[in-house]
């Protein structure tokens, strides 16, 4: 099957700053993908490239086998809920549904109206007077009723209170189950994604740190605790993601496909949050270290 998003060497530069660099990725269909990374890591840039709101500076990106925003049919296949869920503040909820019907050939009006009723939104209410949560729900309704094959959401719950956040994700999951749509959603909080995603992409400092099925990621990482040791002396098939040491003890997070047999280590399973944090701090360290490489030593 075609990958929902396939990129090779994808990069986007603003002036002299690379917002995204050398991004190579292949996301299989039918997943709910969490795109995690700190603020400013390049998540929005990557999603906007997939939507076709941005054009890449380097590399290629294909979405559902086509070029992003390349004609009405490609646009129809991808639904998008943008950051801060923009809506037309002067237009009513009904006007927004009408817009969806006018501008999308595959518009599912029954779905849209059903969802608005279910959410108990007043159809005559102006979008500018909706609460943040309601606006996000309206934006999600517009994106869903278009009946896309892929739904992309950029920090959809960032501005919502915990209750609205839970409701939004719940509605999203119901829709995914019902319509079998692939989803990519970004967040800077792992907790948001943990319950809903089955695929993870970690983006730090404009680079992809890790991408894969959450299950296999969890299975492929271990926390090792034992007497203090230099991480560079570990076997070659252990990739150290994070290492912290006390005077007598070392605690490592390593990626390995093999079982750990060395009896000096206490081996633990690792949770998603710890995994993501390990990759995030590694990415940040790499970023911090970079200037050191250009220093000329006397």
């Amino acid at each position: 099957m075609t990958a929902v998003v396939e990129t090779k060497g994808l990069g986007k530069r603003y002036g002299r700053r690379w917002a995204l660099s050398d991004c190579t990725l292949s996301i299989p269909p039918g997943r709910v993908v969490g795109l995690v990374g700190p603020n400013g890591a390049g998540k929005t840039t990557l999603l906007n490239l997939a939507i076709g709101l941005l054009a890449p500076t380097s590399g290629v990106i294909e979405v559902l086998g086509g070029h992003p925003a390349d004609g009405p049919s490609q646009l129809a296949r991808v639904g998008f809920v943008a950051q801060e869920t923009p809506t037309y503040s002067g237009l009513s909820v009904t006007d927004h549904l009408q817009m969806g019907a006018w501008l999308n050939p595959g518009w599912d009006n029954g779905l849209a109206i059903g969802r608005i009723q279910h959410l108990k939104l007043d159809p005559k209410q102006k979008a500018g007077k909706l609460s943040g949560g309601q606006r996000a729900q309206l934006a999600l309704t517009l994106a869903l009723a278009k009946r896309p094959e892929l739904l992309i959401l950029d920090e959809p719950v960032a501005g919502l209170d915990p209750l609205a956040r839970r409701e939004f994700l719940q509605v999203l999951m119901e829709a995914v189950a019902e319509h079998g749509v692939s989803v990519i959603l970004s967040s800077h909080l792992v907790a948001d994604l943990e319950r809903v995603c089955d695929y993870l992409v970690v983006l730090v400092a404009s680079r992809i740190q890790v991408a894969g099925e959450i299950e296999s990621l969890l299975a492929g990482h271990r926390r090792l605790t034992g007497p203090r040791r230099d991480p560079s002396r570990l076997p070659a098939n252990y990739r150290v993601i994070e290492a912290s040491h006390t005077d007598r003890q070392s605690s490592l997070i390593v990626a390995t496909d093999e079982r750990v047999h060395d009896p000096v280590w206490t081996v633990e399973q690792i949770g998603l949050e710890d995994l993501v944090l390990a990759y995030m701090s590694r990415g940040v360290e790499v970023e911090k270290r970079q200037p050191a490489h250009v220093e000329v030593r006397p």
Partner: peptide, 17 residues
């Protein structure tokens, strides 16, 4: 200014049209 271009340009209508 309001960011609604992101909504408009992700409907099934090309930017040119």
């Amino acid at each position: 200014e309001n960011g609604t271009f992101r909504l408009a340009w992700s409907q099934s209508v090309t930017r040119t049209r």
